[in-house]
Design a binder for these strands. Structure first.
Length: 197
DNA sequence: CGCAGGATGGGCT
DNA sequence: GCCCATCCTGCGG
């Protein structure tokens, strides 16, 4: 079942980050269908969060997507090379988002390995840059609705126990002062498909 | 093993 | 200029 807009309109971005664990992230691009179970996420809490691109209500060409109504993709370029995939949440003009950091490969593994230059399966999608490359996600998908058929998320009925979710501080945001310590990174304890333990 | 360095675009000072 | 929500390679021990 494809997640609908009420899922993304939730006012609690931390809740959405947890709820996305165990869901299936899917892309269908040029007829190529690939997917993976979400195993690791991070919440970015908008204008009050120093680690967020939208901190201080910053609006640039790049960040405009964050201000859209929840339920679209926010894809941006990191370090000039890596395309990082986020889910925009909450109401219009509240720039909250969840970064997908890792998935467990499910469908189209050979297609993903081709895109990733034949990376081993346990290295295929464990990291935000890696999973975007494997799933074919680029900034071309920035702003795309998650209710359409290019990139979307499905509930596949895989229940996640609360005590199977670990939280830590977010990766690579040490510049964000006190906000760097927030426990906004979530991952499945029993998954081998996580970027950093 | 671990770690330094390079690739390289957007956005801020 | 310089710093980044990264990843891969190659080097030394």
């Amino acid at each position: 079942m494809k997640l609908q807009s009420d899922f993304y309109l939730c006012a609690d971005v931390v809740q959405v980050a947890c709820d996305l664990l165990g869901k299936l992230l899917i892309t269908k691009l040029n007829g190529i269908y690939t997917s993976g179970i979400i195993t690791e996420t991070e919440a970015y809490a908008g204008i009050a969060d120093k680690a967020s691109h939208a901190y201080g209500n910053r609006r640039t060409q790049r960040t405009l997507t964050l201000y859209k109504t929840g339920g679209v993709a926010y894809v941006y370029l990191c370090c000039g090379i890596h395309h990082l995939f986020n889910v925009v949440t909450n109401a219009e003009n509240i720039p909250h988002a969840v970064l997908i950091r890792s998935v467990e490969p499910v469908d189209g593994i050979q297609k993903m390995q081709k895109r990733r230059n034949q990376a081993a399966v346990n290295q295929l999608t464990t990291g935000p840059g890696k999973l975007s490359q494997a799933l074919g996600i680029t900034t071309q998908l920035d702003g795309r609705s998650l209710l359409q058929n290019a990139v979307w998320v499905e509930d596949i009925g895989c229940a996640v126990e609360q005590d199977n979710i670990f939280s830590t501080k977010r990766i690579g945001v040490d510049y964000a002062g006190e906000d760097a310590k927030l426990p906004y990174r979530f991952y499945l304890k029993d998954s081998k498909f996580v970027s950093v333990y």
